[in-house]
């Protein structure tokens, strides 16, 4: 009966889903950055997120001020980016993407192990000073924290877009993404570009790690949030920041609506696999994702 339909509740689920989707997008953007410049799906993004959040919270717990802890953690992520470029990417230049993917898989285990070795296995709370209590807007309850996270994500997307479009190094990224050989031929320094892009992915991991860490607590499970980003990437395209945002919104909204309105018919708990159903359905229609670059090859 449509008359019985609770529209306010529907809107609440929808808005909640969209805001959750923004959180997925934040993780997905880290993947996109690496993929755009090297064509590699960086499976270590989740581990980077864990490493960044654990480093930050451990410093704060030792009395380091928030801003300084942020700066030190960012420096650590840059150092990791440089180390990865030197020890993993450079020796594997021009190797098939699957080799690089396997390398990032190995990296994720190394980073997870290193994070626990250095900072221990304890679970930490992380308070960013933002209330996570419901805010009532027109009869709909919306989380203040989710609104803050959405604003941070929007700011980050804006910054990255400007960076890619208007800075020299940003343009170099795009050139490398288009054709590594051609970029090398015209004198672009691939190692510098890769180091920079891994540092940028480190910054995204740090920001996403703090926001997810404030939600879940800083613990090993943070590295599992990559699972939330994968359907977003399939849907939005692996090489599009805009795709990561739109994909995140679509996945977040559809999985929440599905869980609430049709989950009961399947015994509940469907949102995880439903996100992949949505992503795969899009994949059948647009194999490169909504905003991914179509691969054109001469034969």
């Amino acid at each position: 009966m449509m008359a019985d339909f609770d529209y306010l509740f529907f809107i609440e689920v929808l808005v909640g889903g969209l805001l959750s989707g923004v959180m997925y997008s934040l993780v997905a953007i880290g993947f996109v950055l690496i993929y755009k410049t090297s064509g590699v799906l960086n499976f270590a993004q989740g581990a980077m997120l864990l490493f960044a959040a654990l480093t930050f919270v451990s410093l704060v717990e030792r009395g380091v001020p928030f801003a300084l802890a942020f700066a030190i953690t960012f420096a650590a992520m840059v150092a990791i980016g440089i180390a990865i470029e030197r020890t993993v990417l450079r020796p594997l230049t021009n190797k098939p993407p699957i080799t690089l993917f396997m390398a990032t898989l190995g990296l994720s285990y190394i980073l997870e192990g290193a994070a626990q070795l250095i900072w221990g296995t304890q679970v930490h709370g992380l308070d960013l000073g933002i209330e996570d209590l419901p805010l009532e807007i027109g009869g709909v309850f919306i989380s203040q924290f989710d609104i803050f996270a959405a604003a941070v994500a929007a700011g980050m997307v804006l910054l990255l877009s400007l960076f890619f479009r208007y800075t020299r190094i940003g343009l170099s990224f795009r050139a490398v993404a288009d054709d590594q050989f051609a970029a090398l031929a015209v004198g672009l320094r691939l190692p510098l570009i890769w180091t920079t892009v891994w540092a940028a992915a480190g910054l995204v991991a740090l920001v996403a790690g703090l926001l997810w860490g404030a939600r879940l607590g800083v613990q090993f499970s943070l590295s599992l949030v990559v699972l939330k980003a994968l359907p977003v990437l399939v849907l939005g395209g692996f090489d599009s920041i805009l795709g990561a945002i739109v994909g995140g919104l679509l996945i977040g909204a559809s999985e929440k609506l599905a869980e609430v309105y049709i989950g009961g018919y399947f015994g509940g708990g469907i949102e995880t696999w439903f996100a992949y159903v949505v992503a795969l359905a899009f994949l059948l229609i647009r194999p490169a994702g909504l905003f991914g670059q179509k691969l054109v090859e001469r034969v």
Binding site: F9, E12, V13, G16, G17, S20, W212, R215, L216, S221, L224, V225, K228, E255, K256, E259, V260, G263, G267, G268, G269, I270, E271, T272, W273
Partner: peptide, 16 residues
């Protein structure tokens, strides 16, 4: 009885 899919890092729909 409401299920939360593993690992349970998203529960918005269940709590609504």
């Amino acid at each position: 009885q409401i299920e939360v899919p593993h690992p349970g890092n998203e529960q918005q729909s269940q709590w609504l």
